[in-house]
Write a protein that binds this DNA or RNA. Sequence first.
DNA 1: ACAAGTACTTACCCCAAAGTGTGTATCCAT
DNA 2: ATGGATACACACTTTGGGGTAAGTACTTGT
Lengths: 126, 126
Amino acid sequence: MSLIKQSSTIQQNKKIALNLCPVTYTLEKIGGYWKPFIIYHLVEGVKRYGELKRAIPAITEKVLIQHLKQMESDGLIIREAKAVVPPFVTYRLSVAGLKILPVIQAMAQWATDDMEQSTSDHLAAD
Amino acid sequence: MSLIKQSSTIQQNKKIALNLCPVTYTLEKIGGYWKPFIIYHLVEGVKRYGELKRAIPAITEKVLIQHLKQMESDGLIIREAKAVVPPFVTYRLSVAGLKILPVIQAMAQWATDDMEQSTSDHLAAD
DNA sequence: ACAAGTACTTACCCCAAAGTGTGTATCCAT
DNA sequence: ATGGATACACACTTTGGGGTAAGTACTTGT
């Protein structure tokens, strides 16, 4: 899955950051390009792979799978496959995935606030 | 400032994501590699450029400046320079920067919770 | 017999973020 | 006059995430 060079400075720094900073830890888990979208759609409930794909048309299959695998191994979502053919695979949020929803909600709230404020100008905080 | 190719698919997708998803908007602003560290140190109050540099030894000057410029133009922090020599430049959080602190706090909280949970095993959410 | 649907997998390319290294103007202390 | 401190700027390289495109195994529908 696209090998990573553990020796590279960037990986060393990532380790430093993960040790020192819990915020970086969280960013690692939800920071993928389309991960917020996936979470958003899984809030509605259990979804099949194909449903997610159709719900997010701009995402490519490779990246979708990639994100799903990462989020699964990160414990954010749960994959369940029925041993039938054609395959029947579903995804849903785990406990940790559910617990992160308020955080995401807070991020969204700040964003909408900030977008409104930006129409007027930023002023200094004394 | 490293020019960006507006035509690339990734930039197109970024625009799509920013329009559709406020979470992505927030991730854009705090998602930089060392931005959480910068914010963390500015919580203590006004800091000079050199103080920040010494507070985060692993960061290079280029990336530090880069992040500071971005965060300034994003309205998260405020730069103030005294017209003296040698230069005297300080950075501090703006209103928007202060408002995002609870969000960051929530992210940190989720992270520490999740790290604890990960020592035991993840179970499905019914 | 052939296409369509399912859930992936693999090889390859592109590019922007991060890292490396050097340069700059001015002042002060030694 | 030489070096250090200040706050950057600029050119260059690396790297890893994301995009493109094609293939796979197996079944059902026509």
